[in-house]
Design a protein around this nucleic acid. Structure first.
Length: 882
RNA sequence: GGAAGUUUAGCUCAGCCGGGAGAGCACCUGCCUUACAAGCAGGGGGUCAUAGGUUCGAACCCUAUAACUUCCACCA
């Protein structure tokens, strides 16, 4: 047999274990009509991205569920994949080109895409390798990419169907424009922040008078596009000006004063400059009052020809110059400091400009309704369920989705324009060459790409071959559970629900398991700029993948944000070292073939106790995993393994292992092996590497723990009563230990223990103690334990304690101070009296006795009896010490 | 303005169907006891944010209040 090392050194076996798993083929999903499918779609990380701690949490949670289900015998498909991440990837490539001194426009579309694919090839494998380090047991043979043929086909079909249904349209609307990335963004891609800015008060002259109307603005440069000033219709201050004309300074344009209830009279001056082309609210006002829309910005954020003398200036330079010029004209009234919410590009953080632009949109309202209903009718369930409210909140207030991006890396919009008749041509599969309207051949494809999330929204079924009715699609769809962070609900969860219901008529997943975000040990978000990010690969190197996995999920309630720190990784690592050494202990004692068939073993009380606890743990862990309470499940396994198995059972087993009764030794080993094997199985989904490694050392193993059966609760092994009575022995051992400590008795000094037991219980207790005598002596540090009629046999210099099975007397000679002992007993007595007061108070309450469940009342009576008995014994002892 | 969450030991957090307040870390005491010092044994420490209510019984359910966090809307 191989020898195990004395400490847990994950770095020495994790990679080899992963290879073993891959070779076994157990990650590959197989369609099996005799099995129940269980399907999970991995949220695809960005193809050129790097693994961060958030992925690690997401992956770990999926892997736990998937491994659990695989062990339970489901036909598991965990579909992995990567996302082309149109904007993020293109942004990186553009930056690289900038370093090289060129631009994408200079390269041209074709060359740019060639470079992008090369980039994808270069970095696309990295994230996959990192996922493997975590132990992810997904089916790599099915690795998908959002721009591969399958997914692209699905995108094309989906676009076609929505277009045909009139749910995709092209229009000029106010969108969020990033002047750096030079593309439109959806509302969801805007990140807002409170930025310090200014409020500039400008005076606009009223035509044909000496009067002025004062407005306030945070973006002076937009005045170049002003086509009106609005006031509230109820505002008496400005009533006389409504309908009059102002002369827009610097520009000279004649603009009307209009009345519109959108204006808040209490804010600013109560008069608002209206720039319909550069503000969503102004856009609406413009529509209501039929105002012209004058766009003043180029795509790169410089002023266009509408800006007259300011043409060509960057927006901020223009702002500075305009303020300066207004001041020169005497039209700048004042400047105030002002903080306001400013939208930034979530990718490059540049300040966004709202502007009117012709883009493609998806009408969301009709599509949203089935998605709302599906959750309301519980066809898809959120865990924790409070996230359903967040989901509703989004869908009920949904606005149209801007899906076109002025990018090249992505799915090109499948629309062709006929140069001859101006028609839009959209086809589901092949590119059109002839215009179906006029027969012209002068077709050109839209230059833009689709939002990345358009293809992500199809992920649960595009990866399975939809729109074809493939065997995979029929067997594995709908999927079972989607695991993701709450920050992705609006981007992805919602859109998958919408698309799934629209295209497949089914919910894409039955459960959505939501997790929180990870924060540093001070509760701050992890970010590149703070440099407080935890690199999962580094953690794996230092502590092992299993430590990382345990640290991420143990003690965490679903959906809550989590702080992580090295202290947590250390704690997990220590636990795993414990498991490692416990296994090593068991194995080093196995010197011959040991049967694990418990029906052939004459079980001792301690054996039944640990088996009983194992069964309880099996039941609780299974239940928790089924409810996706991963943190609770992990904690249950861990406390069973460490406390029950290591701290108690292994210690209890030592007398038998080192004793002379060979039959007894072998039987104890049977139990040790049985419990160890099942503990490893319970732990496997959480800590796959170490459990697989130890598994390889276990005798008589065929195959991997990866594909072993998950333990099942067996009522024949529950041993409820036996386990309960054995608790008395544990209580006894603990009490003797405490007695020794209370008088500073050196642990190595063995003590003689006298037990006094109620005559009614004597036979049972004697038998129980007799069966466990060696364990009691060893664990409590005693030389002898004997029964006696009274405590007198122990003499005067004695410390005593009452436990449920006996009154304990330990003579400790010089170590005993009678005064202290009296005080200790008195304190003990006080505690017992409190308990008696509590229990009898409860039982005196007629309502409690009448209304509480019978079992509770009975339990309370039993407790009262027990405490009365303890009180009596303590009182006698106290009197004897007097 | 709308929504969701949090408030429990010194710190970080669990706490399921309402039925004697838990873990890890930290702290104190004693131990290298032949699996493990990444360990063992023993211990101290909590007005479960506040105020009401429901209930025989509330950390848990309801109402209000306070503080903090996040998301959405939005300040021209």
């Amino acid at each position: 047999m191989k020898e195990m090392q004395t400490t847990y050194t994950p770095g020495q076996f994790e990679d080899a274990i992963y290879e073993k798993w891959l070779k076994s083929g157990a990650f590959s999903a197989k369609i099996d009509p005799d099995k129940v499918p269980f399907t999970v779609m991995m949220p695809p990380p960005n193809v050129t991205g790097q693994l961060h701690i958030g992925h690690a949490l997401d992956e770990t949670m999926q892997d736990i569920v998937v491994r659990f289900k695989r062990m339970q015998g489901y036909a598991v498909l965990w579909q992995p994949g990567v996302d082309h991440a149109s904007l993020a990837t293109e942004h990186k490539i553009v930056e690289k080109l900038r370093e090289e001194g060129t631009t994408k426009e200079e390269l041209g579309r074709e060359e740019f895409l060639r470079r992008a694919w090369a980039w994808k090839e270069q970095y696309g494998g990295r994230i996959v390798e990192q996922l493997k380090k975590l132990g992810s047991s997904c089916d790599w043979s099915r690795l998908a990419f959002t721009m591969d043929e399958k997914c692209s086909r699905a995108v094309r079909e989906a676009f076609f169907r929505l277009y045909e249904a009139g749910l995709i349209y092209r229009g000029s609307r106010i969108i969020n424009w990033c002047p750096d990335c030079k593309t439109a963004l959806s509302d969801e891609e805007v990140s807002w922040s409170e930025d310090a800015g200014h409020f500039w008060y400008f005076k606009y002259p009223v035509e044909g008078s000496d009067e002025f109307l004062t407005i306030a603005t945070t973006r002076p440069e937009t005045m170049l596009g002003d086509t009106a000033v609005a006031v509230n219709p109820a505002d008496k201050r400005y009533a006389s000006l409504v309908g009059k004309t102002l002369i827009l300074p610097l520009v000279g344009r004649r603009i009307p004063v209009v009345a519109d209830s959108y204006v808040d009279p209490a804010f600013g001056t109560g008069a608002v400059k209206i720039t319909p082309a550069h503000d969503p609210n102004d856009f609406e006002v413009g529509l209501r009052h039929d105002l012209p829309m004058i766009r003043i910005l180029n795509d790169d954020g410089t002023i266009n020809k509408e800006g007259g003398v300011y043409e060509g200036l960057d927006r901020y330079e223009a702002r500075r110059r305009i303020v300066e010029d207004m001041e020169k004209e005497g039209l700048l009234l004042k400047v105030e400091a002002h903080t306001h919410n400013v939208g930034h590009c979530h990718r490059c953080n540049a300040t966004l400009e709202p502007l009117v632009s012709k883009q493609w949109f998806v009408s969301m309202q009709t599509l949203a309704k089935p998605a709302i209903d599906a959750v309301a009718k519980n066809k898809t369930k959120f865990t924790p369920d409070r996230f359903a409210k967040i989901y509703y909140n989004w869908l009920e207030n949904i606005r149209d989705w801007c899906i076109s991006r002025q990018l090249w890396w992505g799915h090109r919009i499948p629309v062709w324009y006929c140069a001859d008749c101006g028609a839009e041509v959209v086809t589901p599969k092949d590119d059109p060459t002839v215009c179906p309207h006029c027969g012209g051949t002068n077709l050109s494809q839209d230059e833009d790409c689709l939002d990345t999330w358009f293809s992500s929204a199809l992920w649960p079924f595009s990866t399975l071959g939809w729109p074809e009715e493939t065997p995979e699609y029929k067997y594995f769809y709908p999927t079972d559970v989607l695991v993701t962070g709450y920050d992705i609900i609006p981007f992805w969860v919602m859109r998958m629900m919408v698309s799934g219901l629209r295209y497949t008529k089914k919910v894409p997943f039955r459960d959505v398991l939501i997790h929180g975000l990870l924060r540093d040990d001070q509760g701050r978000k992890m970010s590149k700029s703070l440099g407080n990010g935890v690199d999962p690969i580094e953690v794996i190197q230092n502590y092992g993948a299993d430590s990382l996995r345990l640290a991420l999920i143990s003690g965490v309630a679903p959906g809550n944000d989590t702080r992580i720190s090295n202290a947590k990784f250390e704690a997990s690592r220590n636990f795993l070292n414990k498991i490692w050494n416990a296994s090593r202990f068991v194995l080093m004692n196995v010197k011959e073939e040991i049967s694990e068939d418990l029906s052939k073993v004459k079980l001792q009380p301690a054996d039944r106790w640990i088996i009983s606890h194992l069964m309880t743990t099996v039941r609780e862990v299974t239940l928790a995993l089924q409810k996706y309470d991963l943190g609770i499940a992990a904690d249950k396994v861990m406390s069973f393994a460490w406390e029950d198995f290591c701290d108690w059972y292994i210690e209890l087993s030592k007398p038998a292992l080192y004793g002379t009764d060979d039959e007894r030794r072998r039987q104890t080993l049977s139990v040790l092996l049985f419990v160890l094997r099942n503990t490893l199985k319970l732990l496997h989904p959480f800590a796959p590497f170490i459990t697989e490694e130890i598994w390889s050392y276990l005798p008589g193993n065929e195959g991997l723990i990866l594909t072993a059966d998950f333990p099942r609760y067996n009522s024949r092994l529950a041993y409820r009563e036996e386990a309960k009575s054995f608790e008395g022995i544990i209580e006894l051992i603990k009490a003797i230990r405490a007695i020794k400590v209370s008088v500073n008795c050196p642990p190595a000094k063995k003590v003689h223990v006298y037990l006094v037991t109620d005559p009614r219980q004597l036979q049972g207790v004697k038998r129980l103690v007799g069966l466990n005598k060696q364990s009691i002596l060893r664990l409590a540090g005693a030389s002898e334990v004997e029964f006696s009629e009274s405590g007198e046999a122990a003499g005067d210099k004695t410390v005593s304690q009452v436990v449920s099975i006996a009154h304990i007397f330990v003579p400790l000679g010089e170590l005993v101070n009678i005064e202290e002992e009296r005080a200790r007993i008195q304190k003990e007595l006080l505690k017992v009296e409190e308990e008696i007061a509590r229990a009898s108070g409860k039982l005196a309450n007629q309502n409690f006795v009448a209304k509480a469940p019978k079992k509770l009342v009975d339990d309370e009576r039993a407790k009262l009896e027990k405490y009365m008995d303890m009180k009596q014994k303590l009182a006698v002892r106290l009197a004897a010490l007097a």
